[in-house]
């Protein structure tokens, strides 16, 4: 188990680094999929099958496709041979690092490493029994997640409308441009 975890995490992290360092954009997208797959494997290792399948369905089956389409729409970006670093890499590196520290601190706060101190982490048996049904009930119970659930749908709606508004004028402009 431990060895499996270390191997999968190593694959995930290495491919995540490659995503930002590889010059060929398409290869970067492939490494991104590999890194997503690693995360899915980690979920499966945690016996959270639903999350693993979601990771596959949404991130590899949909988001990656969207990213590749986006790459294909960028004119002549494919032939680029310039370095993936620009003048802001130091700044963005700093921001990512501080974000990592922040998230790490929050996680440690909620689930302390020392199990004796752990108040937040529930025993494992409670977690594994039919989580999918619990999730479904939680999504729609008034005292649980129903508000985030409806907000998610509003968010998706806004994303859809916004992207159509942004993407549509491009079509018209391009049509005039080309003909």
């Amino acid at each position: 188990m431990q060895i499996l975890f270390i191997i999968i995490s190593a694959i995930t992290l290495v491919s995540a680094v490659l995503v930002v360092s590889v010059r060929n954009l398409f290869h970067a997208a492939l490494y991104m999929m590999l890194s997503f797959l690693g995360v899915a494997a980690l979920y499966a290792l945690l016996e959270s099958g639903f999350m693993a399948a979601t990771q596959l369905l949404v991130y590899i089956g949909a988001i990656s496709i969207l990213v590749i389409f986006a790459i294909m729409m960028t004119r002549r970006l494919m032939q680029t041979t310039e370095s993936p670093f620009n003048s802001q890499w130091g700044m963005s590196g700093f921001v990512s690092a501080s974000l990592f520290v922040l998230i790490g601190a929050i996680v440690l706060q909620v689930y302390p490493l020392d199990p004796a101190v752990a108040g937040g982490a529930p025993p494992a048996e409670e977690l594994v029994t039919n989580t999918v049904n619990q999730l479904g009930v939680a999504f729609t119970s008034a005292d649980q997640l129903v508000l985030p659930f409806e907000l998610a749908s509003v968010l998706l709606l806004v994303a859809l409308v916004g992207s159509i508004i942004i993407a549509r004028p491009d079509v018209e402009a391009e049509v005039e441009d080309e003909s």
Binding site: L56, S64, V132
Partner: peptide, 17 residues
């Protein structure tokens, strides 16, 4: 699997890639 249908859909979505 208790999520068999979902599993099938997620695997078949990978074939698009």
């Amino acid at each position: 699997l208790n999520i068999a249908v979902f599993y099938v859909l997620s695997i078949s979505s990978v074939s698009v890639v």
